[in-house]
Design a protein around this nucleic acid. Structure first.
Lengths: 228, 228
DNA sequence: ATTAAAGTTTAACTTAGATCAAACTTTCAG
DNA sequence: CTGAAAGTTTGATCTAAGTTAAACTTTAAT
């Protein structure tokens, strides 16, 4: 799913390449005017929203090749936060210009539709996980998903980084942080995975996959759709 | 958020209006080639997917003015089912043509982007609900959400239809059907709502809202985006 | 290098909601 | 209309995971 060279040229005119952000920096915040969507070139972000009563809900973790900010299209305002979990490089893509240039970059527009569709599908998977999986299955699924995404669509990495805190994992998965800690600890003790600082190694992929259980995939997603 | 008359003319050329489907009929099924998205003119649908192990996960309930099938854009294949919960009228919109005609119906394309963005935002709300709300809060939130949607963006209906079974509600909310039955029963006993067959009446909106608790809304969604 | 703050682990205890079971009610096909 | 099937309610019991608490480890600022 590549763009043509003329599309890439069009892209070059409008995107602001490789802006660097540090851990803890926000790409955008709730209530800000929606102007750009952001392609992640390297690094790791989380997106989250805050409920009226001040509770944080993490809505996604995002790594290289993925897009954040799409939630702003509808209202013209960002409806949550995107924040770097480590030093990251991002491309700012002005949505307005993307929209205007559409005839010259049809492929790009179609790509964007696919990315949004993919996000909707991903959310269906997420519902299955949050509604029907127990804590062990959630953790196993989460680890495998992260592993596959860090491999950028080519299989899955047996060694990958887990850059978020237990608290963030727990919030995303709808578990208590102690539960996450306990289960990750159990997986290590059983030598299904090992952990060194933020680095995870999957030692028994078969067992971890078994643990993860059911998913909704009709056919596997294969290559990740990318914008730039 | 209306379409111009020329946009509506373009639309007239491509959409298949008012196809009628009966309760239990499927609009599309998993694995079928993605050809159309569907605008619901009247009635009520549910969308769901089936996990490898055969478990059903309801991914949404959809009523008049809403769109189903967007999940198919990415892979070119429908990734789940959409099924009528009652006799419904739907518009079939060929995605291919929609895509080709884009220059003449820019507004329509933008509308579609907004609808997809809205769906992503809605999923963030859903995560907050599934992760942080207890069973009482889930039921109250669900009822209020349905009430608001049946009012088509103008406030919320104090009287509305609850067309799905307890089993479907439970599946969607990640609860056991007995829990749903018990909590709905409790709300009726406390006279916060009353139920006559499939008709729900909210008798104490303040208390129900209180019960529903926190949401992520930055500003209220106002009018629902519609395609046709 | 020091140390305060942030993050993690572990254990004991509690509870919301699942599961099991059984009666009751509504729906709808013939 | 009739009866079987589908859906709902209600009660008793059980358990996965939350909560509370406290020690331990890592991180990062000075």
């Amino acid at each position: 799913m590549m763009l043509s060279s003329s599309e890439i040229e069009s892209l070059d005119d409008i995107i602001q390449r490789n802006k660097s952000i540090e851990k803890g920096d926000k790409v955008y915040s709730v209530g800000e005017k929606f102007t750009h969507i952001y392609a992640i070139r390297s690094g790791f972000l989380k997106s989250y929203c805050i409920s009226e009563s001040g509770e944080e809900q993490i809505t996604g973790f995002h790594l290289a090749g993925e897009i954040v900010g799409l939630e702003g299209i509808n209202t013209g305002v960002y409806l949550g936060f995107a924040e770097a979990l480590e030093t990251s490089q991002i491309c700012a893509i002005p949505y307005e210009k993307l929209d205007k240039l559409n005839s010259s970059i049809d492929g790009l527009r179609q790509q964007l539709f696919k990315i949004m569709s993919q996000e909707i599908t991903h959310n269906h998977e997420l519902m299955l996980m949050l509604n029907q999986k127990n804590a062990d299955e959630k953790i196993a699924t989460f680890l495998l998903n992260l592993s596959a995404r860090e491999a950028l669509g080519k299989g899955l990495n047996l060694k990958f980084v887990l850059p978020m805190t237990r608290t963030d994992m727990a919030n995303y998965l709808g578990l208590a942080l102690e539960t996450v800690s306990r289960i990750v600890g159990k997986l290590v003790k059983k030598e299904i995975i090992s952990i060194d600082h933020k680095m995870v190694t999957i030692k028994q992929l078969d067992i971890l996959s078994e643990l993860a259980g059911a998913s909704c995939h009709f056919s596997h997603p294969g290559e990740q759709n990318k914008l730039a």
